[in-house]
Design a protein around this nucleic acid. Structure first.
Lengths: 125, 125, 125, 125
DNA sequence: GTGGTCTAGACCACA
DNA sequence: GTGGTCTAGACCACA
């Protein structure tokens, strides 16, 4: 379920955090379902349990999971998270567009990229 | 000309590199004009010369400046660099849009952001 | 494994870089095997860790090794690197031949050198 | 007659030395003809006279020019120099071929390069 | 333990 | 004066 890229410059705990975020946001991991235990996952990935713990702490901090004493960690409801993620993505998007404008990128260039990505699904927009 | 943010998580040498990249890309620093000497800048910013050196090495590697032995560092012609930067920015942009599509962001949302950033200058597009 | 020539005009970090390049290209250091740690090697060679660090940064930049945060540096797959090296070597070779032609060196002189180097192994060519 | 490449990594005095070597070896500068004076050349190239002086010292050391007290520097007979240069070029050539052999370059690859360079002039060899 | 960043300070080649 | 190399030594993030 979780794969690690050892070539990546991202620290392991960041990679793990991001993978779970994606799984939760996409609904692959359902709300209130149980997360794999820190130890299980550590063994499975052959990674130091401290590293998994750090990823889980981050996920909890960001509201992706919630801990239940003595039972483990569980997936939060993702609807709020999706909105958060959308917002931060659009912020980042805006930052990029501002930078691009300074470099002389024209509006049409962005729209071309967007159109390609959205090709079929929204072609009648 | 160069400011340092000590609150930032970015290492000093990265910050310095980025500031100069921006100044060169925007044409504030003209091609073939001389960069501040490693030592001068070190004194000005109260930073160790080695740190400036590292930033300059990076800039040289990326083609932003060129060294002349015994004379100092000079600004390269930025036209190629601007194109490089545009390309990588549009790549990053595409990556974002793909992520956004998965989260259910609609085309119109991006275009709204773009329109706001480009407001007046390209209103007839 | 690594030897330093203090008589050489090449900076230490360059020498170290080149030795490791040769070891990796020749397959003495296998892909994904761990490089000696910066500190271990520094002690072994009685050289400052910063100097080793610089050599490792270069090797990483050139794709010879990859770092894993908190774990160390590891040897990359060298197949691409070998091709790169071959190409640059043949370029250099061409440069020399062009210079030699201007000086009046005859084709036969080059071929004699090549034959001597390749003596036995390819005698049926 | 002499051009400087400020983009080059070679120190100025090395560049100047090499240009004169080439001019003398090719016979553009005739034996016993007078070299431009240090001062003249310094002014012409807008370069520090010390740098020119250093280049001339090197050229004298290597036998390319000879000084006459109070009169200036003069070009040596180049026939011996040409032979020297040929020898060192073939040495360098051998070094490359040895390196190439280790990387698995085949004889035919070298010969192809040589043939291309010598194309028309020695096609009947 | 591992690499990454940074400072303080020295010495060298080059112009 | 200019950058390039190197040492000694500190502190930090990551595993």
């Amino acid at each position: 379920m979780i794969t690690i890229d050892y070539q990546s410059k991202l620290p392991l705990y960041e990679q793990i955090t991001q993978r779970f975020q994606a799984l939760i946001l996409r609904g692959v991991l359902k709300p209130d379902s149980q997360m794999p235990s820190v130890r299980t996952l550590a063994v499975e990935l052959s990674i130091n349990p401290n590293t998994i713990q750090k990823a889980y702490s981050l996920l909890e901090q960001q509201g992706y999971i919630y801990p239940v004493k003595g039972r483990g960690n569980f997936v939060s409801d993702s609807s709020v998270l999706v909105q958060q993620k959308k917002d931060s993505l659009l912020d980042e998007f805006k930052r990029l567009v501002i930078g691009g404008k300074e470099l002389g990128i024209r509006k049409a260039e962005y729209i071309q990229v967007i159109d390609r990505v959205y090709q079929k699904e929204e072609s009648h927009d």
